[in-house]
């Protein structure tokens, strides 16, 4: 079964909304004391945002159909940014 580009776009939107609500839930489920430092939570929301950015790039921006160079450049940037952010977080945490 193949899905139409329109359906694919809408499914992407649903998935993005779902992971946004998931990251919100992760960020608020501590109840009374939501503002305590948590490396696990921070890494979790950072990874979710990386997934969202990649979905926007590949599906909404049609990088999925783009030449290999553009796919590699966008993936390379995303990987570099998130490795740098997570490294800054982990090194600062020590």
């Amino acid at each position: 079964m193949s899905i139409t580009p329109t359906t694919r776009l809408t499914l992407t939107w649903f998935a993005l909304v779902a992971v946004t609500l998931l990251s919100w839930w992760i960020g608020t489920r501590h109840g009374e004391a939501p503002f305590v430092p948590s490396a696990a939570l921070s890494l979790g929301v950072l990874v979710i945002s990386a997934v969202k950015v990649r979905m926007i790039l590949r599906e909404f921006m049609e990088v999925r159909h783009a030449p290999g160079l553009l796919r590699r450049v966008t993936d390379g940037w995303l990987a570099l940014l998130f490795v740098a952010m997570i490294a800054a977080h982990l090194l600062g945490d020590r």
Binding site: S23, W24, V36, P37, S38, L41, S42, L46, I48, S49
Partner: peptide, 9 residues
């Protein structure tokens, strides 16, 4: 920006 300002702990 949303993850960094609103959600990170």
């Amino acid at each position: 920006i949303f993850a960094l300002l609103y959600l990170m702990r």
